[in-house]
Computed example of a mutant assay.
Amino acid sequence: MLIAGDIGGTNTRLALVSPQAGPRQLLAEKIYPSGQYAGLAPIVRQFMTDTGTQAIAACFDVAGPVIAGKAHLTNLPWTLSETDLARELGLRRVSLMNDLHAIAHAVPHLAADETQVINRGSTQPRAPMAILAPGTGLGEAFLIWGGTDYIACASEGGHADFAPVNQEQLDLLAFMRARFGHVAYERVCAGSGLPNIYDFLRACTPSAELPDFAAELARAQDRTPAILRAGTAGTGDNRLAVDAVRIMVEIWGAEAGNLALKVMATGGVYLAGGMPPRVLPQLRPGGTNKDASGDTVGGFMRAFTDKGRFETLLRDVPVHVVTINAALLGAAIHGLAQLDPS
Rank of each mutant, 00 (worst) to 15 (best):
261 L>R: 09
118 I>Q: 04
52 G>I: 11
77 P>F: 08
259 L>G: 02
201 L>T: 14
97 M>C: 02
48 M>L: 04
215 A>V: 13
30 K>N: 13
40 L>V: 10
277 P>N: 10
285 P>W: 03
97 M>E: 14
314 L>A: 07
140 E>T: 14
94 V>C: 15
173 L>E: 02
76 L>A: 07
313 L>W: 07
335 G>E: 05
165 V>A: 15
76 L>H: 12
9 G>E: 03
213 F>N: 08
200 F>H: 12
78 W>Y: 11
326 A>M: 09
260 A>L: 00
154 A>W: 09
255 E>A: 04
12 T>L: 00
87 R>W: 06
317 V>T: 01
227 I>S: 03
141 A>P: 01
119 N>W: 00
268 G>T: 11
176 M>D: 05
248 M>I: 05
21 A>I: 08
253 G>D: 15
153 C>K: 11
254 A>S: 13
124 Q>I: 14
101 H>Y: 08
193 G>K: 10
161 D>E: 10
278 R>L: 13
150 Y>P: 10
149 D>T: 15
257 G>L: 08
331 A>Y: 13
58 A>R: 03
49 T>Q: 08
259 L>H: 01
245 V>C: 03
227 I>G: 07
12 T>Q: 05
97 M>A: 12
227 I>T: 10
126 R>S: 06
123 T>M: 09
70 K>F: 01
59 C>D: 09
120 R>F: 01
299 G>D: 12
159 H>C: 01
242 V>I: 03
314 L>Q: 04
62 V>D: 04
119 N>P: 06
190 A>C: 11
26 L>F: 15
143 L>T: 01
107 V>R: 06
310 F>V: 12
220 A>L: 03
212 D>I: 02
66 V>H: 04
52 G>Q: 11
253 G>F: 11
19 P>S: 09
247 I>H: 00
220 A>H: 05
254 A>C: 04
72 H>E: 13
119 N>R: 09
93 R>P: 07
131 I>A: 00
318 P>T: 06
262 K>L: 12
199 D>W: 01
324 I>H: 12
333 I>R: 03
329 L>R: 08
201 L>Y: 05
40 L>K: 02
67 I>R: 14
27 L>R: 15
166 N>W: 10
108 P>K: 09
331 A>H: 09
126 R>F: 13
40 L>P: 03
190 A>L: 00
57 A>K: 02
28 A>R: 01
106 A>D: 13
210 L>I: 15
78 W>L: 03
150 Y>G: 09
231 G>P: 11
24 R>S: 02
279 V>L: 04
33 P>A: 07
252 W>Q: 04
11 N>C: 04
184 A>C: 13
211 P>N: 04
342 S>I: 00
285 P>K: 15
75 N>C: 03
65 P>R: 13
226 A>C: 02
146 G>L: 00
13 R>G: 01
85 L>V: 11
118 I>E: 09
279 V>R: 03
317 V>F: 07
58 A>G: 13
115 T>A: 00
10 T>I: 03
124 Q>P: 02
245 V>D: 01
145 W>T: 06
6 D>C: 05
177 R>T: 14
287 G>Q: 05
244 A>G: 11
28 A>I: 02
133 A>W: 08
295 D>G: 02
29 E>F: 00
243 D>S: 15
130 A>I: 09
